[in-house]
């Protein structure tokens, strides 16, 4: 038996918004420790890794490990039926071929349940090594979304260069070129608005704008985003999900051949 209850169903709505443009379907792996998802986009350029810890749920029970193959368009339809303030419970029997979503209004006067068929998905799991990154940049997530949106007007690629002084995002194309520099914030009253840089070594890497823009769909999940970079390895874009977990996107760099 699997049962997970979340008072704020809006968190789950936001998680779905953050993955549904990048992935068509995905396997939600449920275990005693929580719900995990790992999936590559169809072009195998990026990888999404989602972790929702069991202790972040209001109630959580998972007697046996369960892999739920889910069509994300179908799940989006169901999550649209939930009010933002609704309490959500996901429920499945062991070896089930369906999962049930239950939504309760805050005053408990409206209860609805939706059963969704599960899919059998062939899933490839990739081993992601623990890495010490040369540069770790934390910045407001809305600022990052704005930068990705603005630069994608200029070209298909963004160069992210990080030094101790700051981080520079650049793009160039037919209409011209663009550079956005962010310095580390000196004095911050509000932590959410800070830009901080931890640098061991300078790094400059090129990435596809299109994918960065997909990642920024996670912006409503967190006021801050963390970018981790090392030479010639994938960029990590991480958004914390409240007290419950995180979503990480890995993006393969573009390399001069």
């Amino acid at each position: 038996m699997f049962e997970a209850r979340l008072v704020q169903s809006s968190i789950f709505k936001k998680v779905l918004e953050a993955i549904k443009e990048l992935l068509n379907e995905a396997t939600f792996d449920c275990s005693d420790s929580g719900i995990q998802l790992q999936a590559m986009d169809s072009s195998h350029v990026s990888l999404v890794s989602l972790n929702l810890r069991s202790d972040g749920f209001d109630q959580y029970r998972c007697d046996r490990n369960l892999s739920m193959g889910i069509n994300l368009a179908s799940m989006t339809k169901i999550m649209k039926c939930a009010g933002n303030d609704d309490i959500m419970t996901m429920k499945a029997q062991d070896n089930a071929d369906s999962v049930t979503f239950m939504f309760e209004s805050p005053n408990q006067e409206k209860m609805s349940d939706y059963e969704m068929k599960l899919m059998n998905l062939d899933q490839e799991h990739l081993g992601i090594p623990e890495t010490d990154y040369s540069c770790v940049i934390k910045l407001p997530s809305a600022e990052f979304a704005r930068i990705c949106r603005d630069l994608s007007q200029f070209g298909e690629s963004v160069v992210i260069s990080c030094t101790k002084e700051g981080v520079k995002f650049s793009a160039a194309g037919d209409i011209g070129s663009a550079n956005i520099k962010l310095a580390q914030t000196a004095n911050v009253d509000k932590e959410d608005e800070a830009v901080s840089i931890e640098m061991q070594e300078k790094v400059s890497l090129t990435f596809a704008c299109r994918y960065l823009n997909y990642f920024t769909k996670a912006t409503p999940l967190s006021p801050q985003v963390c970018l981790s970079m090392s030479a010639e390895v994938p960029l990590v874009v991480e958004y914390k999900i409240g007290e419950i977990g995180h979503i990480r996107y890995y993006l393969a760099p573009k390399i001069e051949e």
Binding site: M40, S46, L126, P234, K254, E257
Partner: peptide
């Protein structure tokens, strides 16, 4: 020219 690499190249399939 820069070419897009694939994510499989960096992480091993388990």
């Amino acid at each position: 020219r820069t070419n897009q690499t694939s994510i499989d190249r960096f992480f091993q399939t388990l």
